[in-house]
Design a protein around this nucleic acid. Structure first.
Lengths: 219, 219
DNA sequence: TATCGTTGTGAACAGTGTTCATTTAGATTG
DNA sequence: CAATCTAAATGAACACTGTTCACAACGATA
């Protein structure tokens, strides 16, 4: 009994200490990631450096390598969190209305809003280093592709609901994406030309164009 | 007479040697710029370094600073040459037909073709560092803005010619640009998704959308 | 108590842009 | 021709960057 109880006690102790160490690991992992996201959001891709992240959290640069393979690995995690936020905003917009035409407009608005709110994340995800999310981590890449193919599902549903006319729904989806990406990219990159008002006006004009061309009540 | 002739002779000599030195300066300026453009076109923005340019032409890194203020200054000149090419291609497309609808399609095709042919230049000009061309060199910035406003001239002409319906021609121009930029940017950044065929199909679909919505024969 | 394994450090390496004193070489002058 | 002056090119330095690795510290385990 004594040996048995001591055995379980030590087992429990070992378990607890192991858990605690694991938590500490996760905490530092989070600390690094948060600091990285913050510094990245502020300084963008160019001004981002591991040494600054390390200094910001009070560790030596080498310590980061215990938690991330690479600078790219760290950037991937930053981008991935951005994408999760992006995706959830898109989903919320998609579900915001029963009217698919309204949903699509809400999604477009959310798309542009995300780009303008997190320009550096958008840059990283869709402009600078999309390879981070498609090439390096193939498991995540599948998630991304699924998310992107959700657009096609919505377009198919919109066609079936009579909101969009019939046609090449894959091409429609590409056009939709290119249109929104063009607006956001110009707004981010040429922000001295495209202030919020001009961007908003551009978005409305583009949506009008899209639905005038592809809406079911067009010709 | 002898003093006079010798005076003119030395003057001529001085003139010639000065010209030659000036030519040598221009030659090295060109040599650096060409090497930079080549290395940049190959390696893109990230892989581009002054030291590599210097090594490529057989000079020490510091020598470049006799001919360019900065790395940015050198990049500006690379981008500027890209823009001149871009602009001349656009102009040629604009003048390629009397039919403004054809001209616009040709300009769109030339726009996308430029992006796909010189992706790194396009990135630099319109995605990575547009500040190089708008902020730092204000005299050049005016040229750029004029070039961009040429679009609006064409749109106004298209409206007057009855090719496009009347409306907010500035917004139409923005939409046109955003559409083309979106297509090129996606094609460049997501080149593993958008191969040439898909990009071409996307362009045609987008043009169809544009003219369906804004063409004069639309409702 | 001794051993082991993990963690963080600090120094090093190769690379970057940039500056500057110094050499080099060609042009100009006496 | 000799001396001087000027412009160019260099090479070494500085402050950065990402990354690696031997080593020290320290808590967990035996």
């Amino acid at each position: 009994m004594s040996s048995d109880s001591s055995s379980t006690r030590t087992t429990r102790l070992r378990q607890r200490s192991q858990d605690r160490r694991e938590n500490e690991r996760k905490e530092l992992h989070r600390l690094i990631l948060d600091a990285a996201a913050e510094l990245f959001a502020q300084g963008g891709y160019e001004g981002f450096s591991l040494r600054r992240v390390a200094e910001h959290i009070g560790y030596s640069p080498g310590a980061i390598y215990r938690y991330f393979d690479d600078k790219d690995d760290l950037l991937f995690n930053v981008a991935d969190e951005g994408f999760k936020r992006f995706q959830s905003a898109q989903r919320a917009a998609a579900l915001s209305s029963d009217d698919l035409a309204h949903s699509m407009r809400a999604m477009a608005a959310a798309y542009v809003a995300f780009g303008r709110e997190y320009p550096n994340h958008y840059r990283l995800m869709f402009m600078e280093r999309p390879d981070l999310l498609f090439q390096s981590h193939q498991d995540q890449a599948v998630e991304w592709l699924n998310a992107l193919s959700e657009y096609q599902v919505i377009f198919a549903a919109a066609v079936q609901a009579g909101v969009l006319r019939q046609g090449d729904s894959a091409a429609m989806s590409d056009t939709w994406w290119a249109m929104l990406h063009g607006i956001v990219a110009l707004s981010i990159t040429m922000n001295f030309l495209f202030d919020e008002a001009r961007t908003e006006h551009l978005l409305q004009t583009a949506l009008e164009m899209f639905f005038r061309a592809y809406g079911s009540n067009a010709l």
